[in-house]
Design a protein around this nucleic acid. Structure first.
Length: 307
DNA sequence: TTATTCGACCGCCAGT
DNA sequence: AGACTGGCGGTCGAAT
């Protein structure tokens, strides 16, 4: 659904991603309609000609609500009631970025966990105290209602939806089509959850970057602590607190995700690839890969190469 | 797949 | 008093 002051990228991203999705037989997986209350929609310096009216929402199985560049404006009554109607009928409703404000205004997020652009999280929580706003995730899936963080997270939310609708392989094909950073396509490995370094994660964010760049090396807790200029005890404590998992767990995930990227983009042998990302052997890689991604490295590479 | 080995983790406590 | 750090040691999970 489009409306005045819509964020173009938020509208375009789901459009592109769902439009490129194919089901197993190669047929388009979705029928897509863009609708708005009036035929002409203002979007920054552009005017969009939108061919469907809000009545299309009565028919939609999934409604995507993109961000508004001025979330402080209260959305039109007609839009809100159309969304309420769609939701009560059982349609899936997903918001991108500040689109969460529209869902919130329609009362659809009350009592639910939700997210939005990190800069707007506080405002959303202030205006709608009944929503549990989580600023630390890329998206929140409540089943029928989904919300996502800033622009880039639209990719992640769409992929998540595609994965659920079509399966991981077909979703991966869409990701590859969109030439999006492929690591985002992989499993639930969302360990980089902040869109921008926040004040709290200050010291730890820098360490994560260092770890990311030194995955190939042997990363003992001792070395990491030295790098962070602290004791092992304090390091594990702070790490767990700020990152949400232990250092070893984070490193494993980071290595698996890097392995995924290499599987998708290179022809390195599994053995070679394992040492390249810091695992001591292919056996270790396979074990962790299965744990995190759910398949084997070979299978993952095949699903990205076959078309 | 299993047994052994080794390091990470965390509760506890003392010191700052 | 309260917040924080860092060492100790037992337990548990990862690597071989």
């Amino acid at each position: 659904v489009a409306f005045d002051d819509v964020v173009l990228g938020d509208l375009a991203t789901p459009l592109e991603m769902f439009a490129h999705a194919r089901d197993a037989s190669g047929a388009p997986a979705y029928e897509i309609r863009v609708c708005s209350r009036r035929p002409l929609v203002r979007a920054g310096p552009l005017g969009l000609h939108v061919s469907h009216r809000l009545t299309a929402l009565r028919w939609a199985q999934t409604v995507v609500v993109p961000g508004v560049s001025r979330p402080e404006h209260v959305p039109e009554r007609a839009l809100l009631s159309a969304l309420q109607e769609a939701a009560s009928r059982g349609a899936r409703v997903a918001s991108i970025c500040s689109g969460a404000f529209v869902l919130a205004a329609a009362g659809l997020l009350d009592g639910l966990r939700a997210t939005t652009h990190w800069r707007a999280c506080a405002e959303l929580a202030r205006r709608h105290p009944r929503i549990q706003v989580d600023p630390d995730v890329l998206y929140v899936d409540n089943g029928q209602l989904l919300t996502s963080a800033g622009a880039a997270a639209a990719f992640d939310l769409c992929l998540h939806i595609l994965r659920g609708d079509l399966g991981a392989e077909l979703a991966a094909a869409v990701a590859r089509d969109a030439v999006m950073p492929l690591e985002r396509a992989g499993g639930q490995a969302q360990f980089i959850v902040h869109e921008a370094p926040t004040v709290e994660s200050g010291s730890m964010a820098r360490l994560l970057v260092w770890l990311e760049q030194n995955l190939k090396r042997e990363l003992s807790l001792d070395k990491i602590a030295k790098q962070a200029h602290t004791s092992t005890r304090t390091l594990s404590r702070k790490f767990k607190l700020q990152v949400g998992m232990t250092p070893a767990q984070w490193i494993i995930k980071a290595r698996v995700v890097k392995a995924q990227r290499l599987l998708e983009t290179t022809d390195l042998s599994i053995e070679r690839l394992a040492t390249e990302v810091g695992f001591r052997s292919a056996t270790v890689l396979r074990a962790h890969f299965a744990q995190v991604v759910g398949t084997s490295p070979q299978a993952h590479r095949r699903s990205f190469r076959s078309e």
